[in-house]
Amino acid sequence: MSSQDQQIDTETAVQSTQEDRMEGADDRFNSKLREAFGSSPFILTKFDQFMNWVRGSSMFMLQFGIACCSIEMMATYAIKHDLDRFGAGIPRASPRQADVIIVPGTIVSKFAPRMKRVYDQMPEPKFVVSMGSCTISGGPFQQGYNVVKGAEEVIPCDIHVPGCPPRPEALIYGVAKLQERTANGESSPVTVKPYELEQFGDLEQDELVDHLAQDIDEETLVMRYNWADSP
């Protein structure tokens, strides 16, 4: 081996990080996609389709625990089940950073207005996975005097995951279904009978409203529950 060759070898070995980066930059950034699309560097797609694919592939979940189901939801995020494998595993503490809200538990009269507000704070497009029987119908507590008979009384839901509580596998299946639908641009037919947040002054006058009029300001936001009409 000549001394010149040795010289070159040493040079290669001390190649700077910057040079290293420049070399093969294309491979580094594009390799997988390049392989997938062949020699053409262009992908032809509709922008909407592309956005749907993006949305379905990276979902930020709202860190939102209500009741028993949230324990199973945590188990779904944690090791063994690891929802992150499916591109949907980052719990965000703020609703303003979240795409998906998993509603994991019983909704009661005092909490429904707050949940509505949290949902309203999420940016569009937003999706709702209702987890467990309580969010479908009130579940085992349906007969309770204080229990809202399902999440759909308050906010629209895209996916229902039944169970009491659903196993983590079931929740993963629900989230995967949601991703699939989102990626395909399908939306769920939403049938909501909403309990809206409205100003107290806008409520229909009846005995109850008259009775409360001295305690509640006209502009206060309220939610009115007509339990007799609930399923």
């Binding site: 947040l197 109850l208 409360l212 206060t220």
Partner: peptide
Amino acid sequence: DYNQDQPQVVTFE
């Protein structure tokens, strides 16, 4: 003598 079907109003303040 509680009537479970009576409507209720809950405030958000």
